[in-house]
Design a protein around this nucleic acid. Sequence first.
DNA 1: TTAATGGTGGCCTCTATGTA
DNA 2: TACATAGAGGCCACCATTAA
Length: 299
Amino acid sequence: MWRESRRRKTTKAECVDTQVCEHLRRNLRRVRISSAIDFDESLSAGKLAARQIAVENLRCGELWLVVDAFGRIHTPITNLPKELRAYLTVDGKRLANVDVGEAQPLFLALFLRENARLQESKNLRNQGHPPAHPYDGQSMMDNRPQEEVDLDRTALPADLRRYLELCENRGFYQAVASKLNMHRADVKKRVLATLFDRPWRRNAISGVLGELFPAVVQNMREIKRGNYRRLAHTAQRIESAFMFGRVVPRIMAERPKMFVSTIHDSILTTAENAEYVRGVMLAEFARLGVTPQVQVEPC
DNA sequence: TTAATGGTGGCCTCTATGTA
DNA sequence: TACATAGAGGCCACCATTAA
């Protein structure tokens, strides 16, 4: 019973629209998982048991949905090991994942870009100029029916511009990996940890980041001042606002019957609808003035 | 780094029971 | 009646896992 109370305590959906939550909950109930799963026998007993329990819970209809304080939605699907997604179906159809390349650094880049723009606008006002951009003062994730953002990137600090472009081209992790003579996959998790870590802790990754993007790192350190978790929380809020404030509502409006489930910054849907979802995500990113890589990966 | 989950075990409180 | 003990349940921390 105390687990139930703990779950109730953490189920606070204030930061995600109720209709979005209900839509995702309804879609969750449509998911089925195959009865014939080849578990990796080389796994430790604990890992194997955890996978078996996760699968059993899905079969039994244990379909919880929790919104955390930073707007992320957690479900049995988000907790499911990636390799088991291949066994999921909806209406008998296999699923595909529509994934944003280097999403976390990209959302951070959007936040830093907005910061830089607001700072620039503030400086101009102080000099007696009108606001630099009609977007000034408005949250970048407000879902108003405004036109696409016409962003003058030349006004941004050079290394922030380069950081943003690398994120868009899925080259950010590779740039760090190349400096360290490592493989992209090996540095990815460490880069993410370093970005969100305590700013006073230094390692090889933080050294390379400081070398490649000095103003970006300095900006991040300022955001972390007083509470280093703020940067991670901010990135998650931006991700949440984008996914549940823009992408999912648009899909709900345009294709209300289409299956959709989220895995933080990616969207799970049936393979036949994956290209449509990819188009929606690209269009919504375009409204924010960025063109990241969005890939469809069959589960 | 953040979040979630389940499992386990420790600590605390409350209640019931046994004993002097 | 007073005290000791045992069991149950709530709460929490820690560990494992998953995702990004």
